[in-house]
Design a protein around this nucleic acid. Structure first.
Lengths: 113, 113
DNA sequence: AATAGTAGTAACCTGTAGGTAACCAGTATT
DNA sequence: AATACTGGTTACCTACAGGTTACTACTATT
């Protein structure tokens, strides 16, 4: 496989533009194989504001990595779950996590702050 | 494996902070198993400015992903190559590229611009 | 009638990754 | 004596990801 040295055509950069954000890998991982409501996600990830969470969810939906389902019952609710494509990212995320754990655990504590 | 829903402690985010930049995966991939000079890298990646290239190389060196070797010969030169740790990233980059190619090829052409 | 929970929006602000352009000292070429 | 190449540095600028705060309309609870 050959890479072209231009980020706009680079497949790694392309993947990064999806999972490279601050919250997307965390959101994907939190959802996992469950079907979660907005509020539940907000609880699981307390550091995210609901504006940002809402934006990220919309982007993930546009990328067809998650599915948004509205239930118009007496008290209406919304649930999010991974699509096939989204599920296929999970093992990749785990590998990234592993690499980070084995290769960088201490080295980065300060760098990341 | 359990993730804590906070990017500063998230191992995926940790890894991302290294390869998640615009140029780092490209640089790592360009070096590959070779030993490249600054100027050569600049040629291979024409879209990067030498200020940014210089900065990225410094960061990659700080992270011990590449090695910088100065040769103080008649015309002094500098060569960069991957460390063991840097080499261990290459397969991961390939997987990211693969995922991007199979799952997103078209979907993102516009999104990324 | 007041408060809390639902799933968000709207307006505004900020930090920083990345970009541009000019410059450096030393050597080699023309 | 002028220009180009080496491997960078410095100062300055900008776009945008992400953050903060306040607000919405609806229902349920007390």
């Amino acid at each position: 496989m050959r890479y072209i040295a231009n980020p706009y055509q680079c497949p790694v950069t392309r993947t990064m533009s999806i999972i490279g954000g601050k919250w997307k890998p965390i959101i994907l991982n939190c959802i996992g194989d469950k079907s979660l409501r907005f509020g539940k996600l907000n609880q699981l990830i307390p550091a995210i504001s609901n504006k940002v969470l809402s934006g990220e969810l919309k982007e993930l939906e546009d990328l067809a990595l998650i599915e948004r389902r509205e239930f118009n019952e007496l008290l209406p609710r919304v649930e999010y779950r991974l699509t096939k494509s989204g599920q296929s990212l999970i093992p990749l995320l785990h590998e990234l996590a592993n690499w980070g754990n084995t290769n960088l655990a201490k080295k980065l504590e300060n760098a990341i702050k």
